[in-house]
């Protein structure tokens, strides 16, 4: 029976294609900060999954039921955050297919929310609202160790007489050796 031959072959051919290998899950929340000159920063909140939170806090000798002091937050910043600069803090920022340069993060804090490790930081940005159309933002780890879920802190902002909306958009990106994955990005629409 030919179909009997096709089934195992199809499974074999599909097996390597069913590629997924994240070992860490982070809910990433993007918020925009506005000032007199328009967008002045991207406020980022990362909520690590509970299991990796326990693991990372254990490395730092911090109880997941406790609080992170200012000194501990500084230690986390130095030992488990600053080197992410080389990976643009896992932030994909493009406008009309051109990458938007991201400076060093500021205002970093680490905290614990119901057992989950939380990073918060700001990426300074200077962009008039009228020029902020078609800005695509997402979190993405090319090594695919982390699976990010990109969420918007707010769907719309009003600034300088304009309305900036954040719409969800599917985006397919190539990982470093694990195949390409579809993620959900946020695209700005200025009205």
């Amino acid at each position: 029976m030919r179909y009997r031959l096709l089934v195992p072959i199809a499974i074999v051919l599909l097996a390597p294609a069913i590629g997924a290998h994240p070992h860490m899950w982070i809910d990433g929340i993007l918020g925009l900060e506005f000032g007199a000159n328009g967008i002045e920063g991207i406020r980022v909140t990362w909520m690590f999954d509970q299991f990796n939170s326990a693991d990372m806090l254990h490395q730092l000798r911090i109880s997941p039921r406790g609080q992170i002091s200012a000194d501990q937050s500084r230690e986390i910043y130095e030992t488990a955050f600053t080197h992410l600069r080389a990976m643009d803090y896992f932030i994909l920022a493009k406008q009309r297919n051109r990458p938007v340069p991201l400076p060093d993060a500021v205002d970093f804090t680490a905290s614990i929310d119901r057992g989950r490790l939380v990073y918060e930081f700001t990426i300074p940005l200077s962009m008039p609202v009228r020029q902020a159309n078609e800005l695509v933002l997402a979190f993405f780890d090319e090594s695919y160790f982390i699976s990010f879920m990109t969420l918007a802190a707010s769907d719309a902002y009003r600034s300088g007489g304009a309305t900036l909306e954040l719409a969800q958009e599917p985006l397919r990106l190539q990982t470093d050796g694990w195949g390409n994955v579809q993620i959900t990005a946020l695209r700005t629409v200025v009205r």
Partner: peptide, 26 residues
Amino acid sequence: NPFVRPPSEQPSVAQGARTGMRVAVP
């Protein structure tokens, strides 16, 4: 864990060897 290992030490060659193809992950 990339949060505790600098990116220069990430084995990118090894990662490339793991699939060797540009497949779509469902």
